[in-house]
Simulated scan of single mutants.
Amino acid sequence: MSTSVAYVTFVDPNGFDDEKEIALAAWAGAGITGRVVRWDDPEVDWAAFDSVVVRSAWDYVDRRAEFLDWARRVESVTRLLNPAAVLARNTDKTYLRSLGDLAIPTHWVAPGEAVDFPDLDEYVVKPSVSSGARDTIRTGDRKKAETHAAQLAADGRTAMIQPYLDMVETEGETSLLYFGGRFSHAVRRNPALTGGALGSERQNGRAELRSPESDQLALAERVLAEFPEVLYARVDLVRLSDGAPVLIELELTEPYLFLRYAPGAAANLARALAEVL
């Protein structure tokens, strides 16, 4: 008997999510009937699904509280993947604090706190709740960085101040994809620190398949040990100036999975989902 699973997305008039069809086809091959639904559709009976898988809910940033309320409601009637507690933690990048030296060095400025951080050659300043490069700046001007951080804090948001790493110019970011706790594939990404439109990661030339180094795999597995109950995970790594890899972001909510980049990637996701079910 086929298992019914919701593939959760958002109102997507521009077709940003180009992974739906390949994922649903792989699910069908594993005996899973997938149905594409919007997370905010009031007509959906979530209890009718054997599981609900969050995929491209890319509008949650401006509606985070509503999105998390939805996640908790869904989890009360069926299995939600990834779990609501994971979504709550992962949608605010302050989770990086708990990962210590596994993550990129970050200075935090919460609402009401004074902006005081060390001199850097170049800064990246962004809010802790955001997606893509939204409301993110890269600048070598300390005053500009301070002003942006102060404005984010004044708006009731927590600001993150990080060093810009030259290594991203040559090596890029490495994204490691895991399904059911198992490594599936990895890509090299060329991050854009301006713009950050929805779906920008899938644009031609933004990524290429790569084989991760052993130190990157080891770091990714240490990070994921903190989140043992996830169906899907994207671990975004960069290298510091001394060559050591660090986590720049852990995507457990609605990551683009680069399913088209590696043969068998969609099947790996489907197999992991079937095992959970």
Rank of each mutant, 00 (worst) to 15 (best):
L193E: 02
Q216F: 09
R234T: 08
P255D: 00
L80E: 05
Y256V: 02
T158Y: 07
R97H: 15
R72Y: 12
R97N: 08
A88S: 01
W27K: 00
D135F: 05
P83Q: 00
R188T: 06
R35Q: 12
K126S: 00
L80W: 12
F258I: 05
A114D: 11
N204Q: 14
L252W: 04
Y164W: 12
R64V: 13
T170K: 15
A114P: 08
A103Y: 10
I32G: 04
A71G: 09
V187M: 01
L231V: 07
E21R: 06
A48Y: 11
L273M: 14
G140T: 10
S128E: 03
R202G: 06
D59M: 09
D45F: 02
L219N: 05
T3V: 15
L257H: 00
V238G: 01
G132M: 00
A150S: 04
A159E: 01
A274V: 11
I137M: 06
A48L: 13
H185R: 06
R134P: 07
V11E: 07
G195Q: 09
E229D: 15
Y261E: 14
L68M: 10
A244K: 12
S200F: 06
F179T: 05
L250H: 06
L152F: 01
H185M: 07
L259Q: 04
A220Y: 10
R189N: 03
Y178E: 11
T253S: 13
A65L: 12
G264I: 14
A88Y: 04
T170V: 10
A265G: 11
D17V: 01
D135C: 12
H185E: 08
D135S: 15
Y261G: 11
L120D: 04
A57D: 02
N190Q: 13
S211Q: 13
F179Q: 13
A220D: 02
V77A: 11
R239Y: 05
V5Y: 10
Q162I: 09
F179S: 01
A26C: 09
E226H: 15
